[in-house]
Simulated scan of single mutants.
Amino acid sequence: MALALEDRLAVIELIALHGHLVDEGELGRCGEVFTPDVVYDLAGFGQGRLTGLAALRDAALALGAANPVAHHVTNVVVEDVTDGRVRVRSKGLGIMADGSCGSVTYEDVVVRVDAGWRICHRKVVPRREPLNGLYREEAPARRP
């Protein structure tokens, strides 16, 4: 089923709102982005899965000064609705206090609740290798 334009725009704004709230330290407002029982998958960072808003807040506070000072999201792709859920993929850049930068792919499942659209599942996939390692496959023979 195709997602209505106004819903598509609301989902894109939802994805963007996360960085604004976290960067401002407004962790108490994360319920504006995530469902209360959100699953936040950080297995790609060796940290397993967090469940619920309190777990997200506690993890951010435990990370302390090691958190990025800026979360930027780009390349948002909203897929059509399946079983009332919208799949969204986006790219994230995290800027650290020392100016270093890291890149991730966010794989989100978004649902409509009474208050509007919310992320119920987020998988954060670190981007550490160019072309996802494709360049390491055997290169085709070159012509002389």
Results as ranks from 00 to 15, higher is better:
V22C: 06
A2R: 15
C101N: 07
V104Q: 03
L134W: 14
A60P: 03
E26V: 04
A97H: 15
A141H: 06
G19A: 04
T105P: 01
V86G: 00
E24H: 08
V113F: 05
R89A: 06
L21E: 03
P126H: 13
R89V: 13
Q47W: 15
S90Y: 10
Y106K: 03
N75V: 00
A10Y: 01
V113C: 13
L14G: 02
D108F: 03
R89G: 02
P130F: 12
R85V: 13
A60F: 11
T105E: 13
R122F: 09
R87T: 13
V11Q: 07
A16R: 13
H121E: 12
S90P: 02
Y40K: 00
G64V: 09
T82H: 12
C30M: 15
G52M: 08
L27D: 10
V39F: 08
R89P: 02
V81C: 10
A55G: 11
F34D: 01
D83I: 05
V22L: 10
P68R: 09
G46R: 03
E138R: 01
V73T: 08
T35R: 04
A66V: 07
E138N: 01
P130D: 07
G133E: 08
E24R: 12
T51S: 12
R29M: 07
V38E: 01
P126G: 11
E26H: 12
L131K: 04
G92L: 09
G102E: 12
L42R: 07
L50S: 10
M1R: 06
D98T: 11
R49P: 00
I15Y: 00
L63H: 03
Y106V: 05
E13R: 14
R127M: 07
V111Y: 11
L9F: 08
D83W: 09
L42F: 05
R29Y: 02
A70R: 13
E137K: 11
V78N: 04
S90M: 04
R49Q: 15
V110C: 00
T51E: 15
S103G: 08
V104I: 15
L27N: 09
E32H: 06
A62N: 11
R112F: 10
G52V: 09
E107F: 14
L93S: 06
D114R: 12
G25V: 14
P126L: 12
G44D: 08
I119E: 02
S90N: 03
G84R: 01
G25P: 15
I95V: 15
P68S: 11
L3E: 00
V11P: 13
E138T: 05
T51F: 04
L14T: 02
E137N: 11
V76Y: 03
G94S: 08
E138V: 04
L42Q: 06
R49W: 04
I95Q: 14
H71P: 03
V69P: 03
C120Y: 07
R136I: 00
V11M: 10
L56H: 02
V38F: 05
A115C: 06
R89M: 14
Y135H: 09
A60M: 08
G84S: 04
R85F: 08
